[in-house]
Nucleic acid binder design. Structure first.
Length: 701
DNA sequence: TTGTAATCC
């Protein structure tokens, strides 16, 4: 298809930069107003967005380049504007050219569900169409699109990856925009690698990669073909990616650093808040700490300070584990004469935007997961953030007017020691799900896959080992049929998927699907700090001697028996919202299971078959109680690691001889969460090649 | 005798 750019119309100024990319500089000097939108019409608001000025450039670049990297801060309007500007031009062109519409859609991916919903709503409003018609969205459990009408579709990158299993070339789409690519989430990175492959097969496909930082350069070089073919513009797009820089809408943020490194960032954060309150004009304060413990400690210190109480500080915590009602408190407008202090985890860095923040206090750390492929254990550790994160945090102060950011580390540290970019999740995560997804898409050479950032070979090999032991891949590292394909089809971790497949043989698919759904939510228990005692007592009402998984079945049964009552949940310290989510996941899994030919069947209380099915998926997590152990020490069958049952488990202090755990949290010890007792003979039944006879019999000490 | 950074299908 030829491009629609028409010579003679307004032409963007393009400048070749030193690396062969195309950099577009602002065509107009007129500054767009950045202040609040007031009562301006939507169209007026839109014209104020920086990206509006660049629309012809964007259209031109996308038409003439296979890949366009758009760099722009949040708020530049690139997410909402690029898809619709592009669509309108394209539809107009196709009409003018007398062509029927190709029927292909524009996809725009986001890492988070909430972003998908809000951006789709915004764009449909701007275009004056009903959501779900020309503009729609798809997230898990929600498909608000119409196959006949939808032209722009917003979706999570996870959903787009799932769509590839049915349509590997994503042939439904003519343009795919990957937003927030700089966040480098696992699914974004997988998607980028796959899109690069698709591009070779579909030269007419256009990619727009949107990134917030100077990471644009590495994105562009990733999408640059290794061997440069002839760039024949008459017959196709340029292979070299274009880079388009869109100015941001934010205000200046004045940065200050501490002169000496601080030894206690919580105390430092609190005293910074107090001095802002004493010496700076009105405006809310956002403090970045690492987790709930830090936040509670800081709030404690702040409320002890009688001065801050007197001076009308409203102190609010913010983290994902809070209830929605508590989270919503941070969005309520600050009363006149008062000042809000929001003490938050990383959730305020990317996932939600707080209006009214003028001051940011940044401790320089966040909690991050690191996967150890040798031990096959994920650790959550407090680690230094990157300079990119630090800039993102600072930017949160400049959304309504010029702001200030107080960094609780030295400028020297920022310049010389702080890493420029964070480590992509791909290099920190367990890759079992990622590898099976690629396998299902026919990527044979996983180790040689062209990743945006290569994961460690150790992690890949560990993932392949796990999949091999599950019987999901064979000796030739190919997906087995039907098991491998079925496991890939189920939207869960492969060990959970295998457990569901096995439940068919044991006649307990209804129970196992419930268990899989419960294990997919954070926690079904409602926990209030300081009220563990009541919570523990409530838990005992459901406790099963077999372990936590069977306990979940009892809770689920009670929940259904109550008519899914929130009151029942409240009385039993069960999290109603978590149970609603369990129901949703459960319904989806039942549909998938039926599609795979799994009979939906209940074992009517036979907990032995339930535990056997669990063993079929989680045999690698078997542990044996150490002989003569007085403190409940277990050792993993694989690797002989010291592990303990988590005190929140119903089997805590019960210490059955043989158990299987679902996951490990490592703090001062390695604690197993969600454990179930088993008979060791089931291990050989589930995985004969994994458990040789001799490893199960206790060795002489 | 204890903890839950943030996401997603």
């Amino acid at each position: 298809m030829s491009r629609f750019w028409k010579p003679g119309t307004e032409k963007p100024r393009l400048v070749e930069d030193e690396e062969g990319g195309v950099l577009f500089f602002a065509a107009s000097q007129s500054s767009s107003s950045s202040s609040g939108y007031g009562y301006a019409s939507l169209e007026k608001q839109r014209q104020r967005l920086p990206v509006y000025k660049y629309r012809t450039a964007i259209l031109y670049l996308v038409e003439t380049h296979a890949t366009t990297v758009v760099v722009g801060e949040t708020g530049s309007g690139k997410t909402t504007q690029i898809p619709q500007q592009y669509l309108m031009k394209r539809v107009q062109y196709l009409k003018e050219a007398g062509w029927a519409e190709g029927g292909r859609m524009i996809a725009c991916t986001q890492p988070r569900r909430l972003a998908v919903q809000s951006v789709a709503a915004r764009v449909s409003e701007e275009m004056g169409v009903r959501l779900g018609e020309e503009v729609g969205y798809t997230i898990r459990f929600e498909d608000i699109t119409n196959p006949e009408l939808t032209r722009i579709k917003f979706l999570t990158d996870g959903v787009l990856l799932r769509e590839m299993m049915d349509d590997p070339l994503l042939s439904k789409y003519s343009v795919i925009m990957v937003d927030e690519a700089h966040e480098r989430s696992l699914s974004t990175d997988i998607l980028l690698g796959l899109l690069k492959k698709i591009q070779r097969r579909r030269p007419e496909l256009r990619l727009v990669i949107s990134s917030a930082t100077i990471e644009a350069k590495s994105m562009a070089s990733f999408f640059t073909a290794r061997r440069h073919g002839r760039n024949d513009e008459e017959h196709g797009p340029k292979k070299e990616p274009a880079i388009l820089s869109v100015e941001g809408r934010g205000f200046n943020v004045e940065i200050s650093y501490v002169e000496e490194p601080v030894s206690d960032y919580i105390r430092a954060a609190v005293s910074t808040v107090i001095s802002i309150n004493d010496g700076e004009p009105m405006g809310d304060i956002l403090v970045f700490l690492t987790g709930q413990d830090d936040i509670d400690a800081a709030i404690q210190l702040l409320t002890e300070d009688s001065d801050s109480r007197k001076k009308g500080l409203i102190v609010l915590p913010l983290y994902s584990g809070l209830t929605r009602a508590d989270q919503d408190l941070v969005f309520t407008p600050t009363p006149r004469g008062k000042r809000k202090v929001i003490i938050s985890t990383n959730i305020a860095e990317t996932s939600l935007t707080l209006e009214g923040v003028v001051y940011v206090v940044d401790c320089g750390f966040s909690k991050q997961v690191f996967y150890n492929p040798v031990a096959d254990i994920e650790n959550l550790v407090v680690a230094p953030i990157s300079r990119a994160s630090a800039r993102q945090r600072a930017g949160r102060a400049g959304r309504v007017r010029p702001g200030k950011c107080y960094r609780l580390y030295t400028e020297e540290y920022f310049m010389n020691e702080m890493p420029a970019d964070g480590i992509p999740e791909m290099q920190r995560a367990n890759l079992v799900s990622c590898v099976i997804q690629l396998k299902a898409l026919g990527i044979d050479n996983i180790l040689g896959f062209d990743w945006p950032s290569s994961p460690s070979p150790e992690s890949l090999i560990r993932a392949l080992e796990v999949l091999y032991s599950l019987g999901v891949i064979d000796d030739d590292v190919k997906l087995t049929s039907p098991t491998g394909f079925q496991v890939a089809e189920i939207p869960l971790d492969p060990m959970l998927s295998k457990m569901i497949l096995a439940s068919n043989d044991y006649g307990c698919s209804e129970e196992i699907i419930t268990i899989a759904a419960v294990l997919s939510v954070q926690s079904i228990w409602f926990s209030v700090r300081g009220a563990q005692k009541e919570s523990d007592e409530a838990k005992l009402r459901f406790a099963a001697a077999e372990g936590d998984h069977v306990t979940f079945l009892n809770v689920y049964k009670g929940f259904i028996g109550s008519g899914k009552s929130s009151n029942w949940c409240h009385k039993n310290h069960v999290n109603f919202h978590a149970m609603k989510k369990v129901e949703e996941i459960r319904q989806q899994l039942r549909r998938v299971a039926q599609r795979l030919g799994i009979a939906l069947k209940s074992c009517e209380g036979d907990t032995q078959v339930v535990r056997k099915a669990i063993t079929a998926g989680f045999f690698a997590n078997a542990c044996r109680l150490e002989a003569f152990s007085h403190n409940g020490m277990y050792k993993t069958m694989r690797g002989s690691q010291e592990v303990y049952i988590h005190p929140s488990s119903v089997l805590f202090r019960v210490n059955p001889k043989w158990i299987i755990f679902h996951s490990i949290v490592s703090t001062d010890r390695q604690y197993m969460r969600n454990v179930i007792s088993i008979d060791p003979s089931w291990l050989r039944e589930a995985a004969p090649q994994f458990y040789q006879q001799q490893t199960i019999n206790p060795r002489p000490l």
